[in-house]
Simulated assay, not measured.
Amino acid sequence: MMIMAKIPATKTQKIFIISQILLRSLAIAATLAAAYIVLTSKQTVAVYGFQVDARYSYIPAFKFFVYVNLIACACSVVSLFVTFIFVDKAVNLKNYFYVFLHDLTITLLLLGGCSAATAIAYVGKYGDDKAGWLPICGHFAKFCNKLFISGVVSYLSLLFYLFLTVISAHLSHQIQA
């Protein structure tokens, strides 16, 4: 029977693990908050005597934005558990490359969701004269403000994942060298 001794983590690995836990926890909170804000945002106003609703579910880009944030949140929870496994067990250092791929994928997914929502929000705020689209945020200020806040929070999660990607890439590069 062979007893495996736990190898103490180096200072670089400890900093890596702490930054992973902190950034992933912040990303979980930010993506969940962004999705929740959009999911609960709706407004009904009277426009020229008609009751008009504004809901995220009416606009495919906002549905995509919510789905992306929920997927990123779920993946962040899973990757946080994996990070805790890295703390407790001696893990093959080459597995950090897979962490890098995960972080890069989620970063790109969040970038796509944020970009889609930003493009539609811009048209909602300013309209597009050439296409004949009128701005609606003058009528649905509460709805537009909630979407703006959700977008800011989601862009924060994108930054957290960008930092995670850079850290993972750096560590993966050090291991390969």
Rank of each mutant, 00 (worst) to 15 (best):
A5Y: 12
I7N: 12
P8K: 13
P8H: 04
A9V: 05
K11L: 05
Q13F: 04
Q13C: 01
S19Y: 08
I21M: 12
I21E: 02
L22T: 09
L22N: 02
L23E: 02
L23C: 07
S25L: 14
I28A: 01
I28Q: 04
A29V: 10
A30Y: 02
A30H: 00
T31D: 06
L32Y: 10
A33V: 10
A33N: 03
A34M: 02
Y36I: 13
Y36L: 15
V38E: 07
V38L: 06
L39I: 07
K42F: 10
V45G: 03
V47A: 09
V47L: 14
V47F: 08
Y48C: 02
F50I: 05
Q51W: 09
V52S: 10
V52K: 15
D53M: 14
A54K: 06
Y56A: 10
Y58M: 13
P60D: 06
F62L: 13
K63C: 06
K63D: 08
F65P: 00
V66N: 03
V68P: 02
A72E: 05
A72N: 01
A74T: 08
S76F: 07
S79G: 03
L80E: 03
L80A: 11
F81S: 05
V82A: 15
T83N: 01
F84W: 12
I85T: 08
F86M: 09
V87T: 05
D88S: 13
N92S: 13
L93R: 14
K94P: 01
F97L: 14
F97W: 05
Y98N: 14
D103E: 08
L104K: 07
I106Q: 07
I106A: 05
T107S: 12
L108K: 06
L109Q: 04
L111S: 11
L111Q: 02
G112P: 03
G112A: 10
G113F: 00
G113L: 01
C114M: 10
S115A: 15
A116V: 03
T118S: 15
A119F: 09
I120C: 01
I120Q: 12
Y122A: 12
V123D: 08
G124T: 04
Y126N: 15
Y126L: 09
G127I: 00
D128W: 10
D129P: 05
D129H: 15
A131H: 06
G132H: 11
W133N: 07
L134E: 12
L134I: 06
L134N: 14
P135K: 15
C137Q: 11
G138F: 09
G138C: 06
G138W: 04
H139Y: 15
F140H: 04
K142E: 11
F143I: 06
C144N: 07
N145W: 04
I149D: 10
S150Y: 00
S150M: 07
V153P: 00
Y155N: 14
S157N: 05
S157T: 03
S157W: 01
L162I: 12
L164F: 05
L164Q: 06
T165N: 04
I167C: 08
I167Q: 08
I167T: 03
A169V: 00
S172Q: 04
S172C: 09
I175L: 12
A177S: 15
A177Q: 14
